[in-house]
Each structure stands twice: as C-alpha cells, then as structure tokens.
Design a protein around this nucleic acid. Structure first.
Lengths: 181, 181
DNA sequence: GATTAGTATCTCAGTAGTGAGAGGATTATA
DNA sequence: TATAATCCTCTCACTACTGAGATACTAATC
C-alpha cells in the first residue's frame, strides 16, 4: 500500500488517555478538532479525486473557480482568497497559462499589478466541469439533511470567525513585538 | 508579503454568481464546503503556529501525539491514523529518530513489521508540550459554547462518516473495475 | 525633485510529502 | 514442501508549495 486512503480498521481505541480525559472543556474541544479534521480530510479526498480527473490540482481548481465566479482579479486578491503563498500564486498562474486555461493582463492604472483571467478555453472548461463538481460536493454532503447542513454552516462560521481572529493576532506579531525591544 | 495568512478584507462579494445560486440544495452544500474549509484552515493556522514554536511540523506532531497517547505502534497503524503515505511515514519516523524523539523497535512476532515508539526525550517533550497545545485548541474553539461544540461534533461526525464511505468507494476502484473489462 | 515607505509580483533554493515499485517476511492453498 | 497471495516497510524520483529576498512600481512626506 502506498497512500493511506480510508482506513478500514474498526478503531479499537481500548485505552482512554489520562491526558485527554483530564478535564471536560478541553476534552470537548479536542474531540471537536479531531472530528473536524477528519471530515475535512475525507471531503478533500472526494473532491480531489473528482478534480484530478481533469488533471487539475485543488489549488489550480481554486484559482480557476475564483476567476470563473468573480471574474479577472489581481493575483494578490486571489492569493488571499485561496490562501497560498505569493510564490505559489505566481507558480499556479504560470501553470494555468502554460496550459492555455488562464492568462495575465496588465493593470492600466498600476503597472506593478497583474490581473489573472480565464481564457476562452479555461472558461469553457469550467463551464463543463463546475456543475459536475458541485454535484459531487452535494453528494458528499448527503449524510446530512439540508436543515442540518445550514445549522452546521452557522456553527462553523462562528467557530471559523473566532479562529481567524486568533490566527491574525498570532503570526509574526511575536517577532514584531520582540523587535520593539 | 509572502504567506497569505488571514485576509483582513471585508469580502465585498457584490456579484452573486448564476452558477452558484442556480439551485438551492447545491448552493447549501457549496456554502457548507466553503465555510468548513475556511474554518479548518483558520484552525490549522493557529495550531501550526503553536507547534512550530517547538520546531515540529504538524505531521511530526501527529506522529508523536499518536505514540504519546496510544503507545508504541506499527508504522502502518500510525500511517492510517494520521493519513500520510507510506513513504511519508518512513520519512517522518526517520526525522524524529534523528532528533532523538522517537525510535524504531523490532516486532518480535513479525519480522517485517517495525514499531515506532517515543524515546524518553520524546515523551518528556510531549509531556511539556501537549497540555499547552490542548489549551490552544480549547482557546481556538472559544467562539462556541460547550453545548454548541458538542452539537457541531455530532453533525461533523455524521457528515464525515458519509464522506469517508464515499471516498473509500471512489479511489482506485474505477481503474480496478475497468481492468475487469 | 528626492527620499522613504508601501505594495504587487516574481525568483529561487529549499522542503515536506507523494506514490510506484522493490524487497523481505508471513500466511494460505495446493 | 512449493507457490501464490498478502503484508509491512523502505527507496527514490518527483512535485506542489513555501518563504526570504529581489525587482519594479506607486504614494506620501519632506
């Protein structure tokens, strides 16, 4: 076996760890994190399999989807939206351009900036791919009723907002603060 | 700027896409996917920042955590648990071994298999790191009340189970079925 | 105008991780 | 026994990404 894919094992889990069961609120949060990570991974696997049929990586697809739904955008805008590094952004657009799916366009008012946009070919591809892909997503969510999906969305939104706030505080701030001696 | 981190932008989102608003159940599912992915990413960022303080990648930490909580295990068991490839598993244990945090042990009953286990040093490190890490997780989840966290966990579990079932069906099966002519 | 800070992209060296396949060991079947 | 099938790990070539810094431009302040 090479890739892990789904484990068929029954999760024996006979031992309960002292460290985890130590204190209830912590245990609840840890459990939530594990379950969230696992369902996310399972979904990613399903979606990735769908997208790879068209020889696209998830990141490439994310770029194309952003362009498809929001139109031409600055590289930096897409970068923030799909959360890749600046180097990765350049790389992704390069690759899509090489395949004739996207292209760069100059920004008339700011010569530093470049727009990325879908080519005709890229748009045609998205028009044929996207509905299928949406159907796959819908299929992957079928474990939950629509009302449950909406409830889940609301909860995740709250969770995500708080986590994002926290993440924005943390990153290079320590270094920055440290340098202010 | 190099890495994207959190976008401070207000998500203008003036245009509603025809493709997305086309049909309600699909729209619900797509929305859920976006929100799930975003909160997952935000959490990963927070946790990663915490773990990197100790010069560990998330994957290395995952291995150590598995060993810490479940004791010595076959490489294959860990692999299934943390979902990395077989090559990645070897690589991860190598790196932990090089740093003296983990070690390989022969399996007495099966000479193909190797156990991975924490060294004294690795266990000591986990004892000092893990409680902090658990606190960070708990902190990242503070946007939700405990009851909400439990509700969210339940919904995600159902979702994840169905998605995992779907993922297990899909992967190489097409190829396999195709070969049976 | 000159200087400084800020912003947007690109370059490039480096890295974590993948996955096909090999090798060696075990188990099942004939 | 053979021998076939299966299992567990490791090797290795490869790839998608990262992130520090470079480059090129714009904006703000003197």
């Amino acid at each position: 076996m090479n890739s892990p894919k789904r484990a068929a094992s029954k999760e024996p889990r006979p031992v309960k760890s002292a460290a985890i069961t130590a204190d209830l609120p912590t245990a609840t949060a840890l459990k939530l994190w594990v379950v969230l990570a696992r369902s996310h991974d399972a979904l990613v696997e399903v979606l990735k399999a769908d997208i790879e049929r068209h020889d696209l990586t998830l990141a490439e697809f994310a770029v194309m989807e952003a362009l498809y739904h929001k139109g031409p955008q600055l590289l930096g805008e897409i970068q923030k939206r799909i959360l890749v590094s600046s180097g990765g952004m350049t790389f992704l657009v390069d690759r899509l351009a090489k395949r004739g799916l996207a292209e760069r366009r100059a920004c008339p008012s700011d010569r530093r900036a470049r727009y990325a946009a879908l080519t005709k070919k890229g748009e045609k591809l998205m028009r044929s791919i996207f509905p299928e892909h949406a159907a796959v997503i819908q299929g992957a969510m079928m474990g939950l009723k629509q009302s449950e999906q909406r409830e889940l969305t609301a909860l995740l939104k709250t969770l995500g907002k708080e986590a994002a706030r926290l993440a924005a505080e943390t990153p290079a701030c320590k270094a920055a603060l440290a340098e202010q001696e």
